[in-house]
Amino acid sequence: MTPTQRIFAVAASLVTFAVIIELIRRRKLREEYAFLWVVTGAVMIVLSSWYGLIEGITRLIGAVTVTTTLFLFALLFLLLISVHFTTVLSRLTVQVRRLTQELAILQASRRDLPAPGEHDRER
């Protein structure tokens, strides 16, 4: 990697990490969902600043170039994060369903039925 590339890589990962932390600080990204993002940001910083590590990993997994390793791990991370999102989405779906049902049950249990005669549709 050329020095320019390294500086750009380190800067990009630092900015990403800072954005993630700032979002968590402002509670725009909830802590319980932030775990994978914080890990992603941290790994990006480590990999971009420690070239020996990424070379080692490249040899370890049998990849030919360092870029392959980077792309591979980026893809794996994105995959993990979207699977994680789908589980969160599934949980939210169940919760919304439960709330909607509860609302309907409560509304049916209350005696908010219209007074007799209000509905003359019955033929």
Binding site: T100, Q101, A104, A108, L113, P114, H119
Partner: peptide
């Protein structure tokens, strides 16, 4: 409304 008019108790899902 139709169901209520026919004498049923009605539980309505908002969505």
């Amino acid at each position: 409304e139709e169901a209520r008019a026919a004498g049923a108790t009605v539980a309505t899902h908002p969505v």
